[in-house]
Amino acid sequence: MEKILYFERTEFDSRLATTKHEMAKRGLDILLLSEPPNVNYLTGYDSYTFYTPQMLIVALNRSEPIYVTRLVDRPSAQIFTYLAEENIRGFPDFYVNSTTSSAWAFIADVVKEVGGETARIGVELGGYYYSARTHADLVKALPNAEFLDADLLVNWIRIVKSPAELTLMRQAGRIADAMLTRAVEMAEPGVRECDLAAAVYHQQHSGLPEFGGSYDSSIPYFCVGDRARGPHSAWTDRPLPDSTQINIEVHGNRLRYQVHVSRTICIGKPTPEYTKFAEIQIEGLNAALETVRPGRACSEVFAAFSKVLAKHGIVKTERIGYSQGIGYPPAGSERTVSIREDEQTVLQPGMCLHLMPGLWLDNGTRSVAVTQPLEITQTGYAPLTTTPRVLVVKK
Rank of each mutant, 00 (worst) to 15 (best):
109 D>A: 13
111 V>P: 07
114 V>F: 06
114 V>I: 11
115 G>Y: 02
115 G>P: 01
115 G>T: 09
116 G>Y: 00
118 T>E: 11
118 T>S: 15
119 A>V: 06
121 I>K: 01
122 G>A: 12
123 V>W: 05
124 E>M: 07
125 L>Q: 13
128 Y>S: 12
132 A>Y: 14
132 A>L: 13
135 H>T: 07
135 H>R: 14
136 A>G: 07
137 D>V: 07
137 D>E: 15
139 V>G: 04
140 K>I: 04
143 P>H: 08
145 A>T: 09
147 F>S: 14
150 A>T: 11
150 A>Q: 13
151 D>I: 00
151 D>M: 00
152 L>E: 12
155 N>F: 04
157 I>P: 08
157 I>D: 11
158 R>N: 11
159 I>Y: 03
159 I>H: 02
162 S>G: 06
162 S>L: 11
163 P>S: 04
164 A>G: 03
166 L>H: 07
167 T>W: 00
168 L>Y: 13
169 M>L: 15
169 M>G: 14
172 A>R: 03
172 A>N: 06
173 G>D: 03
173 G>L: 02
174 R>P: 01
176 A>V: 03
177 D>C: 09
177 D>L: 13
178 A>N: 06
178 A>S: 15
180 L>V: 12
180 L>W: 03
180 L>N: 10
182 R>V: 13
183 A>L: 06
185 E>Q: 14
185 E>Y: 06
185 E>F: 04
188 E>G: 01
188 E>P: 01
191 V>R: 12
192 R>N: 11
196 L>D: 02
198 A>S: 14
198 A>N: 09
198 A>T: 13
199 A>K: 09
200 V>A: 10
200 V>H: 05
201 Y>C: 00
203 Q>R: 13
205 H>D: 08
206 S>E: 14
213 G>E: 05
214 S>F: 09
215 Y>E: 06
217 S>D: 08
219 I>A: 11
223 C>E: 03
223 C>P: 03
227 R>F: 06
227 R>K: 13
230 G>T: 12
231 P>G: 05
231 P>L: 11
232 H>Q: 08
234 A>E: 05
237 D>S: 13
238 R>E: 03
239 P>V: 06
241 P>I: 13
241 P>H: 08
242 D>Y: 04
243 S>F: 01
244 T>S: 00
245 Q>R: 15
246 I>Y: 01
247 N>I: 07
248 I>T: 03
248 I>D: 02
250 V>W: 02
252 G>S: 12
